[in-house]
């Protein structure tokens, strides 16, 4: 509470690109031919695309929802399919998705279209056989198949991998007036403590040797866990303090980030390099410049 008056309040965002759906909605609003209702229909379509990037809701039910005719929904859908990226988005299935991609690539040759429409499951197989089936030279079939292999069957997949992760920072570096404060964000971690009620049991003679041994082991394990949890906390704080010192200008917004050598951190903190690597793994730090993976600061 002491710090409240001088603390700057701001929202923190992950330093990453928007999600696929956000990206599509932004694109949708740039399409000039759509009016307000069309935009609402378009957003509805986009937000209801499945994980693969396909539209699975019948156009009729969308039309009903917006009280318009089905053609109008179809018009919006075509605008999305033809103009928004990634190509193939909002198709009904993998076949339609690939056909859309071919059209948008401006492919004139009918062979790739034919292969997708009739022989999609066989594209990866024997081109000589396909050539005989289609009565076309094998070379042509081969190059059409090569082209088809460059297409994606599930347009949302490529995006999914780079979707901004839902990030919970482990470490927070806050700017308070002229100095930085480092603390842990253990929002999810409950306070855990040693429960000594059972300890007396160990030393009573009511238990068998085996039971006593088990309790001893548990006691040991509990101590060790609590100690390791404490060491984890203090090492993360030390890493945070180290960063405040070493990338001060970056944190102040006065310079680009120059990553620090892990060896230097290890040396300064007096722990092995491998320990630092463990400490960085999968953790994020919230700074006045955004939320970053902790590993971004090191090289």
């Amino acid at each position: 509470p002491v710090y409240l008056p001088s603390k700057e309040y701001r929202e923190y965002h992950t330093v990453d690109k928007p999600s696929l759906k956000e990206h599509l909605v932004m694109g949708l609003h740039l399409l000039e031919e759509l009016d307000e209702t069309d935009l609402a229909i378009g957003e509805y379509i986009i937000y209801n695309l499945d994980d693969r990037g396909f539209i699975t809701i019948p156009l009729e039910s969308i039309a009903k929802r917006f009280n318009v005719d089905t053609e109008r929904v179809g018009k919006v859908l075509i605008a999305i399919q033809e103009e928004l990226d990634p190509p193939g988005i909002a198709a009904r299935n993998a076949m339609e998705c690939m056909l859309i991609q071919l059209r948008r690539m401006g492919v004139k040759d009918d062979l790739p279209y034919l292969l997708v429409e009739r022989y999609l499951p066989m594209i990866g197989s024997d081109t000589a056989f396909l050539a005989r089936l289609l009565n076309r030279p094998e070379e042509e079939v081969k190059s059409a198949c090569t082209l088809l292999h460059k297409l994606t069957a599930f347009p949302a997949k490529a995006w999914q991998e780079s979707d901004p992760p839902s990030v919970l920072p482990d470490l927070i570096i806050d700017k308070l007036d002229d100095r930085f404060e480092v603390y842990l964000n253990e929002a999810m971690i409950p306070k855990i403590r040693y429960f000594k009620e059972y300890e007396t049991l160990i030393y009573k003679n009511e238990l068998s040797e085996e039971e006593q041994k088990l309790l001893e082991t548990m006691k040991q394990e509990a101590f060790e866990f609590l100690r390791n949890l404490d060491r984890r906390r203090s090492l993360l704080i030390e890493v945070g303090n180290f960063l405040v010192e070493r990338v001060h200008q970056f944190l102040c917004g006065e310079a680009d980030l120059t990553p620090v050598m892990i060896e230097e951190a290890a040396h300064t903190l007096g722990v092995p390099v491998s320990t630092i690597l463990y400490a960085l793994r999968g953790k994020y730090v919230q700074t006045p410049r955004g939320i970053f993976p902790l590993s971004k600061f090191f090289t």
Binding site: D170, M188, I189, I192, F195, Y278, G282
Partner: peptide, 30 residues
């Protein structure tokens, strides 16, 4: 061990804590 706990994200750590609290008589959520 220590390194194992150090390497865990909060979500992973929460799993470990939940398991331990259930199986270890000497640990409890405060």
């Amino acid at each position: 061990g220590f390194l194992e706990i150090l390497a865990k994200s909060q979500v992973e750590l929460l799993d470990v804590i939940e398991q331990l609290v259930e199986t270890n008589l000497f640990l409890e959520i405060a």
